Each structure stands twice: as structure tokens, then as C-alpha cells.
Amino acid sequence: MGHTRSGFVLWCSLGLFFGTGACYCVYKWVFRKGKWKESARGEKGVAGAAASRTRVTSGNEKSPADDLKKSASDNLEPYHLQKLIKLLETTEYCSVREQVLITLSNSAAFSVNQDLIRELGGLSVIGKSLSDPSMEVRVKALNALNNLSMNSKNQEHIQVYISEICSGVALSPLNSDLLLAGLRLLTNMSVTNDYHQMMSHTIPSLLHMLSAGNKTTQIQVLKVLVNLSANPAMTRDLLRVQVPSSLISLFDSCMNIDVLLRALTFVANLNDNLKSQSCSADISQYSAESLYYLFFGESGFSQRLAALLLHPDVEVKGQVARIMTS
């Protein structure tokens, strides 16, 4: 019933912007045979066992495979995108904002639309939705920006929201959709070193989530941390953070393989940085509760690493060897 009513509201809103003739094809695009589903997420990169510092991306919110295979005529035209952006900016209906954001997010699966949405001023309109009173709208806005951030030119515009995104991540309920959406966007925005310093103030929150979150949250947090640790300039910011000693429990043979492998990659990146610069020259800058002492002090971490040499996974053993032999 709720979907039917919201669909009627959206139909009327589209009619006002597009006219009754043109709005039908846009309505079909938004609802896709009446299904209110977001597209599935696919990870484009994973933390592997390469000797070089590893980075990851979160991937983008893609439409289902059958939707992506549709002909170009089924894609939204620039005129439609422009009207949808205007509708997002002006509508008072939360349900309409949510569905328009889903539509823009799905359309961003096409690289040409990533450019068009930017050129039509859509990034700033979507960015305003990050402060929407509705949590669901904020989630959809983060998902849309995540898809659009696969474009490097778009990242130059999205960077102005990094501080707001980091604050939102720190304040989001643990393991929530809002938190995960923010972490996915930070993952894409941290693939290069360009915006790392803008994220430095959220590192303590990330490490807290890594300790307290569930498996899904831990994986998303580690994707961001792996990217940050691949930048030698971020080493001190990471190692100075005070962390609970329970964080060492991640490095156990019984730990989920995706969590364990990324956690080891994170440490291996930091270890490489320490060996190549003077970050460890003055250990007085690190407190006894710091990440530095947990991984590189006398915390029993080296014994855990030695035990992981017996792990059945080849990539895990490769990362352990990378840490112990560098």
C-alpha cells in the first residue's frame, strides 16, 4: 500500500516536470516493473598478497545484469536526468527523493551518465541530500555519490563533502546501512592519496568500528584503512591512535578470511612504511595504548603472526611472510 501511494506521488511529480507523454518512460525506469529494489553491489578490488602496498575500491551500485544489457534507447536522456535532478532539488516528498536518488544511482552505472550528472549540476544537488532528515534518503545519496565517485573528475567535486561524510560515519549507528554506505564512499575516495588528509580525523572512529563492528562493518572499515595505510604520509596518523588491546583478536586462524586478509594487508602496509621512513625513529611519540605498540611493540602480536604461518590460505601466509621478512 505504501509503495502504491508513493508510486502515485512520484507519477504526479514526474508528470509536472516531464509532461504526461515523457514521464511514462522515466516512471518505468524508476520502478522497473514495479520493483523498488536497489542494485546489487560488486567489489571491484580485494586486498591480495602482492608485495606492493595494496589498495581497494568499493565498486559501484550496479543495476541487475539484465538491466545493464538493455538497449541504449532504454537509458535516460540528458533531458530526463536534468528534470530528475530538478525534481530531487524541489520535491517535498521523502519517498520521491529516495526513488529519484535510486534512479540517478542506477543511471551512474553508465560512464556517460557520470559525466552528464556532473555537467548538469547533479553532484551538488545530491550532496545536499547528505543532510536530509530522512536516514533512508541519506543512504541513497551516499550510494549515488559512491557510484559517481568512480569517475576521477567527479571526485574533485565530491571531495567538498568528505568532512561531512566522515562526521556522518562517526555518528552512524554501528553496523547500520548508513554507516556502510558512508564507508563504501570513503573507500572509493581513498583509492588515491589526494584526499587522505581530509579523512585523518576519522581514523580513531574507524579503528573503534573495526574492534566493535560485525564482519560486514569490519570488512568495509578495513578497505578504507588499507587504502590509507598505502600512503606513507598517513603512517604517523594511523600509528598514534589509541586502540583497545582486543583489536589483536582479529589476527586469529579462526577469523573470517576476508577480515583476516585485509587486517594483515593493513599491518603489512604500515610495516613497509616504517621500514622506508623514520616514523619509528622516535618511539616516544607513541603511547603504550597506540596502534604502534599493538603491532610493533611487545604485545604478543609476533607470536600470533608466527601461528598464522600455518594457516591453510596461501594469501594469508603470503601477507604474514611479507610482514615478518621485510
Rank of each mutant, 00 (worst) to 15 (best):
L81I: 15
L264P: 09
K128P: 02
V267W: 08
N256D: 15
D115T: 09
V259G: 11
K317P: 05
L274K: 11
S276Y: 09
K44I: 03
S245V: 15
R262K: 13
D237E: 11
N75I: 14
S134C: 08
K140G: 04
V125W: 04
W29K: 09
Y27L: 06
G34V: 03
K223N: 15
L250V: 10
A51C: 02
V221L: 13
E119S: 12
A51I: 03
H311E: 09
R304Y: 10
T20I: 05
L116D: 07
H80N: 07
T20F: 14
F266Q: 13
L174C: 08
R236W: 07
L185W: 00
M189D: 01
R118P: 01
S190P: 01
R184W: 00
S107W: 13
M150S: 15
R322K: 10
L247H: 04
R184Q: 04
L123T: 03
Q218R: 15
L222P: 05
Q82K: 15
I126P: 00
L171Y: 14
S245Q: 13
M209A: 10
S63D: 14
F110T: 09
D237V: 05
L88H: 03
D132Y: 01
C94H: 08
A47Y: 03
S326V: 10
Y93S: 12
S211D: 15
S205H: 08
Y286Q: 01
P64I: 04
R304M: 14
D237A: 10
S52W: 04
L228F: 05
I158K: 13
N273G: 08
R53P: 12
G21T: 07
R97A: 13
H201A: 08
L76P: 02
S200D: 06
T216P: 00
L14M: 01
E119V: 05
